[in-house]
Write a protein that binds this DNA or RNA. Sequence first.
DNA 1: TCCCTCCGTGTAATCGATTCCACGAGGAGG
DNA 2: CCTCCTCGTGGAATCGATTACACGGAGGGA
Lengths: 337, 337
Amino acid sequence: MASIKDVAAEAGVSAATVSRVLNDHPSVSPEARTRVLAAVEALGYRPNAVARSLRTDQTHTLGLVISDVMNPYFTELARAVEEEARALGYSVIFGNADERPDLQDHHIRTLRDRRIDGLLVSPADGGSPLMLDAVRAGTPMVFVDRWIAGTDVPVVRADGREAVRDLVAHLHGLGHRRLAIITGPAATTTGRERVEAFREALRAYDLELPDDHIGQGDFQAESGRRATERFLDLPEPPEVVFAADNLMALGVLDAVRARGLRIPEDIGLAAFDDIPWFVHTDPPITAVAQPTRELGRAAVRALVDRIEGRAPKSVTLPARLVVRRSCGEPAPERSKP
Amino acid sequence: MASIKDVAAEAGVSAATVSRVLNDHPSVSPEARTRVLAAVEALGYRPNAVARSLRTDQTHTLGLVISDVMNPYFTELARAVEEEARALGYSVIFGNADERPDLQDHHIRTLRDRRIDGLLVSPADGGSPLMLDAVRAGTPMVFVDRWIAGTDVPVVRADGREAVRDLVAHLHGLGHRRLAIITGPAATTTGRERVEAFREALRAYDLELPDDHIGQGDFQAESGRRATERFLDLPEPPEVVFAADNLMALGVLDAVRARGLRIPEDIGLAAFDDIPWFVHTDPPITAVAQPTRELGRAAVRALVDRIEGRAPKSVTLPARLVVRRSCGEPAPERSKP
DNA sequence: TCCCTCCGTGTAATCGATTCCACGAGGAGG
DNA sequence: CCTCCTCGTGGAATCGATTACACGGAGGGA
């Protein structure tokens, strides 16, 4: 692979001049410029990003540590992050933590070893020493979706409070009174917040949220299945289950189907996170939709602001309720008569 | 951030010795080794991967250029690739080509600029000059899922021929005779092969595949919708539609639902690629399942073999039919009486 | 005419590692 | 006791870029 010296030789100038042309430094004569450009063309020269990074201490690469790639919500987030990063001239290295703090640490470590310019994290836990080290060491960082308290890292996230209130209003309007929730890990902010928002919304209708109506989940399908089975074994099972993410909703579907029960006739279902497939499940699922792409874009912008010396700002975007049929009473349909 | 010199100073040895300890070179005295290790610990030193890469000409990074991240099949593939790569000591940089050749080229270019050790590609087209350049330049490469003829790049893929035969047998057994297919882009091998396999399987039952029963799709949901509408507008619409990927199957679902028709009563549906959600759609969808994780792992192993100087081998794994209810006649269910 | 300034360019240092080579000490063998 | 080999170590070159600095020549002002 041709190096800058080869180009310099071909163009009959020094490597310094080639570098100046490539970084369009002002003081290069027009003749030198054209000769260099011709040599670059002739050799198909491409600057070695590794060497450049070593010298400039910039990799133009961002790290994204995501809790679970198989979760469509995070997939969409990742896609949006990559798009915006590309638009701003950055590449992205993804790390899939699979909700495991040890894997999360692994990725943070290797990403920092590679001297990425900044880190986008959706923490799987309350913050490992390693992550806090990274923050303290001054690695530019932005939290997305989930965050860790007690740091001054900017946070880009959705606020579901309003949408959860709308959901409870919707359920109450349909006559449901015994509502249950399957939460995420208490170590995650989203795990805690979503129960809190739900509890608060219930309070407005003088509804209770007894402990046996709170299923402890981990944002994975299997935990949704287990929690649902426990609900169904209750002497008086809940009328509606609210899953705090889309994968656990899948688990609910599984469990309900395994017992030969039907949604919404036997039990209702709602989910946090809306994804394309929810339109096509049996039945279509009512969900709280996050502005996922905007979150991804905003997160990258905040991180790049931080990297390039501008003040990054935290962003909170509203989520909204999308009513479908999984809690009873069909949403208006446009089917032909 | 501490460098090797800082460690050397702290340990009272030269940088060369530190390097030797870290790469466990045999000739280092035990005392020097412990002093260096202590200094590394004390300073929290981590080698700069950028500098190391410049010197050794190895980045321990693979590039994965995928046609569409939002497609669950590729997501699963990406996950498997990252897992296996991690196990072998490599990181992965993903590039999402979104089925666009220009984006694919962009990613190949920036990945090569970053001097990735090898490239895993699922080509969105028949091979751009840039991709062929990369092959000719000797960049270690492996094609996964899709491939490009006329290169000696190893290919890791699934063979769906047998499973498609099983599918046609299944459909024929259910009494269906007018079968249609929605294909992928003719520029992709999977786009072409799947029609070919289908056509061949039909021939065994003396069934025709008239042109108006071939919908030209592009592996995206919208094209599945459009093709289905055209099928439904036919004087005698097909009895079953076979979508050549899971996203186009989603489009079929959309189109059928929009007309107020039902699956499988009014029209049957089968898909290439099985994904978790197909169990939960209305109705559950019959699909040809690829051994996605094994493909991902095998692809990484082949690529790493190539990188590390061993002879890489192409791998073809069989796909298999998973029968559900979307073509009629329920599959055996374990629901309680 | 002389001097100062500015412009274009090349030389060399630098980033942080790895690795070749040389050197001194110590042990083995003659 | 001398020679030779091995072992542990440090010095210095190297990877491919960027960039501070020096230098020569041209041009302008006094």
